[in-house]
Design a protein around this nucleic acid. Structure first.
Lengths: 205, 205
DNA sequence: GGCCCACTGTACCATGTGGTACATGAGATC
DNA sequence: GATCTCATGTACCACATGGTACAGTGGGCC
């Protein structure tokens, strides 16, 4: 850390951090399937030698990218905790509005690309699958309970919520038909609100 | 077509068809991200030269594979038309049981891998996105209407159904937790059945 | 000033890639 | 039997890749 001043400059970031940030942006835009160290380095205004110097190898760079993206993705969860007092429909609507924001699309495309590759067992991406669903279930289950879902059902409902979010995002990213996908989400909100009102809490299965 | 007898042999398939079938199996098992013509050819017991001879180029082979897989995927839809007289929950359960069969997992993994790459604009895979949602909406909408969904809502509900199916499949392929994902589907069936009974048809929005 | 060390760049290498040129073999047609 | 056509294989090519060897630079530290 002696020489931090040397490259800290205005940003306060190390060259490594700057390269990683830039790499994530580039990869989010171009995908990681057909990216070579050389093309990436050229886009970042450096040489592929530098990427190897800072990250060791291409594989390790990707692991770093995947982990960072994953961490950011996870960070969104805590950021968007709904108000338990508002109606369930409003909470769902707020969540969907947030997660479907076009500004997040590049990250989500990258997420699904990596997901797809990890499903095929591509090395170093597999570990991403470990908590890819379960890590969301804890917080999501709590939210569901606070919204009136019977505890013994809350985990299954949380799983359903994750699936719907991802399924609709897949649709949205492919079709870009915001109105139609929003309508599908509204349909679910409608259906789910009814269930919460009439069955949730009062009629434990 | 003069020489069809030459290579028709017992199978009745041309070498090209045999290679395509084998390639789809191989790719479904290994993914297509890191497959080279040479490795594929070796697995098929031929030379990479043959693949180029029959399919022109690697890209075109993949287009062929993608299209064929897509066509098979679509074929499943017509195959599993539910009986309109059975309760809606049974129809959904039958569909889920069919589509979540582990025998289909390799194909579905491949589907999501290609989906992810197509989202990133990988050439020749993009066209896959064209009807990737809409092609399912027609039949699915009809089914929903026949199950008692008001026509003006049926398309949004169909979209929701596609999203839930794919979202839960993503979960299933990653976690392999059949019981948990089935439970999430049951939760949705429960929720949806209530809506169909109390709101569907009788309470148009 | 002398040393250290992170950083960056220039060649270079071995390897694997997709694709091409050319030769061979086996049926089918006449 | 001559010939044609499709299928297949061998050898090769140009190229891009990830990674390495080596050199240079410039600021902090003593």
């Amino acid at each position: 850390m002696y020489h931090m001043v040397q490259w800290a400059g205005v940003t306060g970031k190390s060259p490594r951090e700057r390269l990683l940030d830039g790499a994530i942006d580039y990869v989010a835009q171009h995908g990681l399937a057909d990216v070579s160290l050389r093309s990436l380095a050229a886009a970042l205004g450096t040489s592929h030698r530098m990427l190897i110097h800072h990250f060791g190898s291409k594989e390790r760079l990707w692991v770093e990218i995947v982990r960072t993206v994953e961490a950011r993705q996870r960070g969104l969860l805590a950021q968007i905790l709904p108000d338990p007092d508002q109606p369930v429909g409003e909470a769902m609507r707020a969540w969907w509005k947030h997660i479907s924001d076009p500004a997040l699309w590049p990250n989500e495309r990258l997420f699904f690309e990596i997901y797809g590759q990890a499903l095929q067992g591509r090395p170093h991406t597999t570990e991403l699958l470990d908590g890819i669903v379960d890590d969301w279930l804890g917080p999501a289950t709590e939210i569901n309970v606070s919204l009136g879902v019977p505890p013994e059902l809350a985990r299954a409902h949380a799983r359903l919520g994750v699936a719907i979010t991802r399924g609709l995002l897949l649709d949205l990213l492919a079709t870009r038909d915001v109105a139609a996908v929003d309508a599908a989400m509204e349909a679910f909100i409608d259906v789910y609100t009814l269930w919460i009102e009439r069955a949730g809490g009062s009629l434990p299965r």
